[in-house]
C-alpha cells in the first residue's frame, strides 16, 4: 500500500548573496495514514523547513529545488498556489509553536473556526458556527457556547493552543504537521496538549508529523522517528528501536544526551562540537567531523540510508562493503 505522504529526495535551497545554501538535501521518508512520525534533531537541522515544504509555505527565497512530495500518490510540491491552497487546511493541517502569536488577535476564535470550515467544507454560517462550538468542546474549552465569541487574548496559552488544534483539525485533514506544539507552553500543560493531540488524531485517523525536542513526547506518542542532522535524515525507524537502540552515531549521541527519567546522572553525555552551518557542510557524511567512528570513506562519500537492523541509518558503518563495517550492536556505549 502506498503511504499517505511520500517525500522523496527533497532538496530545499536558499539563494543568498554569497551563493546558494542547501537547507534540505535528499530528505526521504513516508508517513502512513493514521501514523505519527516524530521528527527530532538539533536546532537548525531542518525540521521546520521540512514541515514548511510539505504544507507548501516555504518562506521566499527558499524553494524546493529537487525531489518530490506526494500526497496519496499525487504530487503536491509543484502545484500552483491556488491548488495548493485548497489542500492546506483541508488535506494537510498545521499546528505552530507559539499559540500566543498564531491566532489573529482581532477576530474571535469562533470567527476563525467558521471561516476555515466555510472555506473548505462548503457549509453555511449557522452550521459552521454550530460545528465551531462542537470543536471547542472537543478540544476541552469549558463553556464553549459562550467562549466561541471570545477573542484570543481572553484565553490562556494552553487554551489558545487547544483552539489552534481545533483550527488545524476542523476541516478534518488526513495529515497534520505539528511543529513543536508544546515548546512555548508551560511545562505543566505540555502533557495535556500532547494527550489531546494524540486522542483527536487517533479518533479521526489523522496522520501526524510531530516535530519536537522532547524525547519523552516522542517515546510516548510517535510510531516512528526520523532523526535529522544538517538538512539530512540521519536515521529513521520504529520509535522503540531509535530511542532504545539507535544505530547512527549521531542518534547515539542524541539519545545519550537525554536525561533518563528513572535515575539521576552526574553529567549528561554531550556530542563534541557543533552542527555545521549550511554554508560549511563537510563533504561526505555531514557528521564526520564530530563522529567518534569516522573513517576515510566518511570524508569522501555521502552515505545513503542503509538497512541497520530494525532501522535505517545514513552511516557507512552499516555498509557491508565498507572497510570498517561493524555489527550494529557494537557502537553502543
Amino acid at each position: 500500500m502506498a503511504a499517505l505522504l511520500e517525500v522523496r529526495n527533497l532538496r530545499v535551497e536558499f539563494p543568498t548573496r554569497r551563493g546558494v545554501l542547501t537547507a534540505l538535501d535528499g530528505v526521504s521518508f513516508d508517513i502512513a495514514a493514521g501514523e505519527v512520525l516524530g521528527v527530532v534533531g538539533e536546532s537548525g537541522a531542518g525540521k521546520s523547513m521540512t514541515g514548511a515544504a510539505i504544507i507548501g509555505l516555504l518562506e521566499p527565497p527558499g524553494r524546493i529545488a529537487g525531489g518530490e512530495i506526494r500526497l496519496d500518490g499525487q504530487r503536491i510540491d509543484n502545484l500552483p498556489y491556488e491548488r495548493m491552497r485548497r489542500i492546506r487546511g483541508k488535506e494537510i493541517g498545521a499546528i505552530f509553536q507559539d499559540p500566543l502569536t498564531t491566532l489573529n488577535p482581532l477576530y474571535t476564535v469562533g470567527r476563525q473556526l467558521v471561516e476555515t470550515m466555510q472555506v473548505h467544507l462548503g457549509i453555511g454560517a449557522a452550521e459552521a458556527r454550530r460545528r465551531a462550538i462542537g470543536w471547542l468542546e472537543h478540544v476541552g474549552i469549558p463553556a464553549a457556547a459562550q467562549r466561541v465569541d471570545s477573542y484570543p487574548h481572553e484565553f490562556s496559552g494552553g487554551m489558545r493552543q487547544r483552539v489552534v488544534i481545533a483550527l488545524a483539525l476542523c476541516a478534518e485533514p488526513r495529515l497534520v504537521v505539528a511543529d513543536e506544539p508544546t515548546t512555548a507552553l508551560d511545562v505543566s500543560i505540555q502533557a495535556q496538549i500532547i494527550a489531546l493531540l494524540k486522542r483527536l488524531t487517533r479518533e479521526k485517523g489523522t496522520a501526524v508529523m510531530l516535530i519536537t525536542h522532547d524525547m519523552g513526547v516522542i517515546a510516548e506518542t510517535a510510531d516512528r522517528v526520523a532523526v535529522m542532522y544538517a538538512g539530512r535524515i540521519a536515521e529513521i525507524g520504529p520509535v522503540r528501536e531509535v530511542v532504545k537502540h539507535p544505530r547512527h552515531p549521531y542518534s547515539v549521541g542524541l539519545m545519550a544526551s537525554i536525561p533518563p527519567l528513572d535515575r539521576r546522572v552526574e553529567r549528561l553525555a554531550q556530542i563534541e562540537g557543533a552542527m555545521p552551518r549550511l554554508s560549511a557542510i563537510p563533504p561526505g557524511c555531514a557528521f564526520n567531523p564530530r563522529c567518534p567512528h569516522a573513517f576515510d570513506r566518511c570524508r569522501a562519500e555521502r552515505p545513503e540510508l542503509l538497512e541497520a537492523g530494525a532501522t535505517r541509518a545514513a552511516c557507512w558503518l552499516y555498509d557491508p562493503a565498507s572497510e570498517k563495517h561493524v555489527p550494529e550492536s557494537a557502537i553502543h556505549g
Binding site: L57, R85, R86, G89, K90, T102, L103, V119, L167, A168
Partner: peptide
C-alpha cells in the same frame, strides 16, 4: 497569524 491563516488554506 498570517502564516497560520495561509496554512489553514484561506
Amino acid at each position: 497569524y498570517i502564516k497560520f491563516a495561509r496554512a489553514r488554506g484561506l
